[in-house]
Design a protein around this nucleic acid. Structure first.
Length: 842
RNA sequence: GCCGGAGUGGCGGAAUGGCAGACGCACCAGACUCAAAAUCUGGCGAGGGCAACCUCGUGUGGGUUCGACUCCCACCUCCGGCACCA
């Protein structure tokens, strides 16, 4: 007898059943009723913990629910398999990255299966395999041809621990590396970039179309793109005092406050300003300037960017303000960034806090050009810069304008006069994709002494990673030392040439994998346009909030670029995005809450839990823990509760197994129902309604599961037995069957088993989701709350058809209410049908 | 500083402007048991009252409303993003 709930046995059984019967294999040739349910593919780090599990469990529950709703669901899975950890491990242990990665994949695949998560494994992609990275390289070449991949010498982020450069997105605000935690250094290196800045405006504009994305993510991307409207103004360089000529005679700057330009009293260049050295060369100030630049260069990004102290020196040069014709001094200052704007700033100390601090420190002149609405600003009484709006003053013919109106007029003036004009500036920088590491997709370029930089011909792809390399902690990519890889011939002239030794950032691999799932085994082309146009954008994308900027921005960029190549007809990859919250757990070491990590000693691994309670319990608890978009604290005691509930359902089915089977031909009939079964029947249909709404909306599994629990409590209120009426037995049967169906997306193994036990053929996945019987929701008597001045004072039962007047008179006659209105005047009676009566008394 | 989100019992959390605290966890009491586990029943915001019941209570202060956890205004705290970005 199976009253013990043998979870291990049934879980193995059903996992095998789903797999053998291909229940998650989806034919994508047709787009009818399609539902592309995508979970972010994992990096194969070794093992998954219950925090990772949340992602896959949510996705699996969604997929199962949609399938029962009759949709054809595509849920593929793959591996973001290139990456530094495997290479670092190789240096330590000698195990080649390929081997350790494939091992980890095997382990993690098993873990996903043990959770009961089902995928169409025929579509599995592994980004470190040549059949995948061949196409990553192909896409690189396509981008190169469109001018979207280029190489340039630039000050880049260097991670001294991982010995590679990083993209801006991979450096945390405190100046440390996102992955290794190392203090990032600046280095001048020649590197490969993707020109994502060409797409800045489209990436920003299209955010507005993403209704199915969380506000939070959209706002993060908006911040990251950082559009700001302003003006470009070219200041003229005053000729050198010694009469020597300058290479450049103009110093352009960007400002969002061109309205303050008549208050500009000096100009400041970034220490990295390219012409700086040449500007001061031979002048008495040159030595001081060079010393200053050197000092600034030694400071880390963090020291440079801590607000507060601003340092600078005078260059000995002057520039002319094109609006006033006035000559103002040119300084170098460490608060000016070369990466933003033009690396030159017009300083208006009266109306900018940074310029104010700098002018005060170096005793530079301050001039008012915006007056506040009260006309009360007086320069000698000002303690700080006035940065608010106001009226333009002392600014030639612009004086008297409200400053917001002055901005476009003054920018237009610059354009008319030919010394500038309105411009839009973005914070977003181009995406640095070169990595000086082995374990990534090689950049398919060749350097020839005669022909220069030559792309690898498409027919020669993939550029394979060599296997015979040594991993040494030398800080140099093994590819650089691998002669058989580096040495090649020029595709153009056939002479000896060298291969590029940099590999691509792994975010390149993950920027297009969701296209590849549609044609994972296709060795003719990267992307199957027809299938992609049919099945994309992804209907539901599920993943962690940590990818809000990096992965999700890059994938959007790729989609737009691939669209522009004419390969796909859509421009946004993910219609709906769901970002689940992290699972945290208190650390035994310091009692603080952290996301699960080995170093904090707070990792909960699923194996022991699955062994003790079963996968369904772990799934149910993970979904019940709280709203899935929020962070949640793992609590072992809660797992016990989920287990108790599943066991209770199991027991109810087996206690009444014969009764349930025999009632198979009985159908609930509203006409003959006695109150107890009528109540349960209503509760059942209310539950179907609520649960369906929860799943169609924000995936609030926690409330859906709570509703099933309530329904089970109601089931126990109906004392069912073999002697019960056919009507009661019919309702009981429909209710228990529905419970099994309703819980199946969350706890699929037990549901399949019980479904079969109830006399149905498998699989529950091919059974339609229960539908609401509207008639069952009807009540002929409704309880109404009676309020006096908004406070509950009693309650009455009224007929469903009772009219306002009847309800009103019954409410007034109620003894509880009488107590509170006695001797007072009822000024107003509000009747909310079906809910309450509120009496406003004086 | 700017942008986004959140503040509700001992805990996780629930509530289209209409009974605050659903559901679960923990805890308490009882039933079953020789006993334990499991299971079942009941209780469980604070204060007052023998009780019926009353008062207070959703971060703070105002407002709108017959009625506010929910809407508006101002603030406090926490979390996340951006930030010497001109």
């Amino acid at each position: 007898m199976k009253e013990q709930y043998p979870f291990s046995e049934i879980e193995t059984k059903w996992q095998a059943y789903w797999e053998t019967n291909g229940l998650f294999k989806t034919d994508t040739a047709s787009a009818d009723d399609k539902y592309y349910c995508l979970m972010m593919f994992p990096y194969p780090s070794g093992t998954l913990h219950v925090g990772h599990g949340r992602n896959y469990i949510i996705g699996d529950a969604v997929a199962r629910y949609k399938k029962m709703r009759g949709l054809r669901v595509l849920t593929p899975m793959g591996w973001d398999a290139f990456g530094l950890p495997a290479e670092n491990a190789a240096i330590k242990t000698g195990t080649p990255p390929r081997e350790s990665t494939l091992n980890n994949i095997a382990i993690m695949k098993q873990q996903l299966q043990a959770w009961g998560c089902c995928y169409d494994w025929d579509r599995e992609v592994t980004s470190c395999m040549p059949d995948y990275y061949k196409w990553t390289q192909w896409l690189f070449l396509k981008l190169y041809k469109r001018g979207l991949a280029y190489k340039k010498e630039a000050a880049v982020n260097w991670d001294p621990v991982d010995q590679t450069v990083l993209a801006n997105e991979q450096v945390l605000p405190d100046g440390t590396a996102e992955r290794s935690g190392a203090k990032v250094e600046k280095k001048m290196l020649s590197q490969w970039f993707f020109k994502i800045t060409d797409y800045a405006q489209r990436l920003l504009d299209d955010l507005a179309k993403l209704d199915g994305w969380p506000e939070r993510v959209k706002s993060m991307q908006e911040n990251w793109i950082g559009r700001s409207e302003g003006a470009r103004v070219q200041f003229k360089l005053i000729p050198r005092p010694d009469g020597r000529a300058d290479d450049e005679t103009l110093v352009p700057c960007f400002t969002t406050r061109v309205d303050t330009i008549y208050g500009c009293t000096y100009m400041v260049l970034a220490p990295e300003y390219p012409q700086l050295d040449q500007l001061v060369d031979g002048l008495p100030e040159a030595e001081d300037v060079r010393a200053f630049v050197q000092r600034a260069g030694h400071l880390s990004a963090i020291e440079r960017t801590t607000e507060g102290d601003k340092n600078g020196v005078f260059t000995g040069r002057h520039v002319e303000n094109p609006y006033t014709g006035e000559q103002i001094p040119l300084w170098v200052g460490d608060y000016v960034l070369m990466e933003y704007g033009t690396g030159a700033v017009m300083a208006v100390p009266a109306h900018d806090t940074r310029d104010w601090a700098f002018a005060r420190k170096y005793d530079l002149p301050i001039r008012l050009s915006i007056q506040n609405p009260e006309q009360s600003l007086q320069l000698d009484r000002m303690e700080e810069a006035y940065t608010e709006d106001g009226i333009v003053v002392d600014s030639a013919h612009f004086s008297g304008l409200p400053n917001r109106e002055a901005i476009p007029q003054m920018a237009a003036y610059a354009e008319a006069q030919g010394f500038g004009g309105p411009v839009i500036q973005y914070r977003l920088r181009d995406w640095l994709i070169s990595r000086q590491r082995y374990w990534g997709a090689p950049i398919p370029m060749i350097y020839c002494d005669a022909c220069g930089m030559v792309p690898v011909p498409e027919s020669d792809l993939p550029v394979l990673l060599p296997e015979n390399v040594e991993f040494k902690p030398s800080g140099e990519s093994p590819l650089k030392r691998c002669a058989s890889f580096i040495e090649t011939t020029c595709p153009k002239c056939g002479k000896p040439a060298r291969r590029e030794s940099d590999t691509m950032d792994t975010f390149v691999d993950s920027s297009w994998y969701f296209f590849r799932y549609l044609s994972a085994r296709d060795d003719e082309q990267a992307i199957d346009s027809v299938q992609c146009n049919n099945w994309l954008p992804v209907d539901q994308y599920i993943g962690g909030i940590e990818h809000a900027i990096l992965h999700l921005m890059y994938a959007r960029f790729f989609t737009k670029a691939i669209h522009d190549m004419g390969l796909i007809s859509f421009e946004e990859p993910f219609a709906q995005l769901f970002t689940q919250g992290m699972i945290t757990k208190r650390s035994d070491m310091d009692g603080q809450l952290y996301k699960m990590s080995k170093s904090k000693g707070n990792v909960v691994s699923p194996e022991a839990l699955i062994q003790q309670y079963g996968a369904d319990t772990v799934r149910l608890y993970t979904l019940f823990i709280g709203p899935p978009e929020k962070e949640a604290e793992w609590n072992d005691a809660g797992v016990e509760g989920a287990y108790r509930f599943l066991r209770r359902i199991w027991r109810r089915v087996f206690e009444h197994r014969d009764l349930l089977r025999e009632a198979a031909e009985l159908t609930p009939n509203l006409d003959g129902m006695e109150p107890p079964e009528r109540d349960l029947y209503r509760k059942l249909h209310e539950s179907i309604q609520r649960i369906t709404r929860d799943l169609e909306g924000d995936f609030h599994f926690n409330t859906a599961i709570a509703q099933i629990m309530e329904l089970m409590n109601a089931v126990d209120d109906l004392a069912i037995s073999a002697d019960s009426s056919p009507s009661a037995r019919a309702v009981f049967r429909e209710t228990m069957e529905s419970v099994v169906l309703l819980i199946s997306p969350f706890a699929p193994h037990i549901a399949e088993e019980l479904w079969q036990e109830l006399g149905h053929p498998p699989s529950i996945l091919q059974t339609p989701w229960p539908t609401v019987n509207e008639a069952a929701l009807y009540r002929d008597e409704i309880e109404m709350v009676l309020q006096v001045n908004g406070k509950v004072r009693g309650r009455i039962m009224v007929g469903a058809e009772a009219d306002q007047a009847l309800i009103e008179s019954e409410a007034l006659a109620n003894p509880q209410v009488q107590k509170w209105i006695e001797g007072r005047t009822v000024r107003k009676v509000i009747v909310v049908p079906g809910r309450l009566v509120n009496l406003a008394v004086s």
